[in-house]
């Protein structure tokens, strides 16, 4: 079982778009996937048409971590389940930190999740506060979408610095160029510079800027499902293939 986080300390860079399509691509490749929507805005739940039921947003459901497991919903796609937004995130950091510990306090609840899924994918909000530390420590791979602009470049460098300062595993950071516009000179220059500076950290696959991705808000389905032959879908599948290797999913025997 591997945990993959889609994370950036910057908003609107394509974290959710990546999480949604990566989740679908991984599931379509036969892996059992749980996508956790950690953003209170619930964007990835929205793309999968999953609404948090009122019953589940009641406070008592936030109490037990087992209740969180109960709030998992099947998506409309084979092998892909969703943990909707707003579910028990008060304790999600605990959930994450215990996930990988065999003698976990939440042993029973987690054992069920471990047995059911090969990948847990996290769609993170831009600011993580208490959660961030837990995500950084638990994730086998942290996938960071980077729009090739000067501002994004600086944000990514800040993240690298933060990891170094806090003794976090930098090698689990994997950056991915997002919303790439090949016609823009700035994009090309920024990508060349960043890739030169940290050659191993960037995926080869790049996600182009595409209206097909924007349309996901109307279709409310992954572009890899609705337009599997589009350039965007192909790019997401290429990202998926690289992430499988980088997160060690190709070597994973199934149990954590």
């Amino acid at each position: 079982m591997k945990i993959i986080a889609c994370y950036s300390n910057k908003g609107g860079v394509g974290k959710t778009a990546t999480a949604v399509n990566l989740a679908h691509a991984l599931a379509a490749s036969g892996r059992r996937v749980l996508l956790c929507d950690l953003d209170p805005q619930g964007a990835s739940s929205f793309y999968f048409r999953v609404k948090p039921s009122r019953k589940l947003s009641e406070a008592r459901f936030f109490d037990g971590d087992e209740k969180m497991v109960e709030s998992i919903r099947a998506s409309d796609y084979e092998n892909l389940d969703i943990l909707p937004a707003n579910m028990a995130f008060r304790n999600f950091d605990v959930f994450l930190s215990q996930m990988k510990q065999p003698r976990s306090r939440l042993k029973k609840a987690l054992a069920a999740v471990r047995a059911d899924y090969e990948v847990i994918l996290l769609d993170c909000p831009p600011s993580l506060s208490t959660l961030s530390e837990a995500v950084f420590r638990a994730a086998d791979a942290i996938l960071v979408p980077v729009i090739p602009t000067t501002l994004s470049q600086r944000t990514f460098e800040q993240l690298l610095a933060f990891f170094a300062e806090n003794d976090l595993p930098t090698d689990r950071l994997h950056a991915m160029f997002s919303m790439v516009q090949t016609t823009k000179r700035l994009h090309a220059d920024t990508m060349a510079e960043l890739q030169g500076a940290c050659p191993d950290r960037f995926l080869t696959a790049r996600i182009p800027f595409a209206t097909d991705v924007e349309r996901m808000g109307i279709d409310r389905a992954p572009v890899t499902a609705t337009l599997p032959n589009s350039a965007a879908a192909r790019a997401y599948r290429a990202v998926c293939a690289e992430v499988v290797v980088r997160a060690g999913l190709d070597r994973d025997t199934g149990t954590a």
Partner: peptide
Amino acid sequence: VAFVDDEGKS
């Protein structure tokens, strides 16, 4: 046949 809710979710 899928039975879907008002969001179009099965």
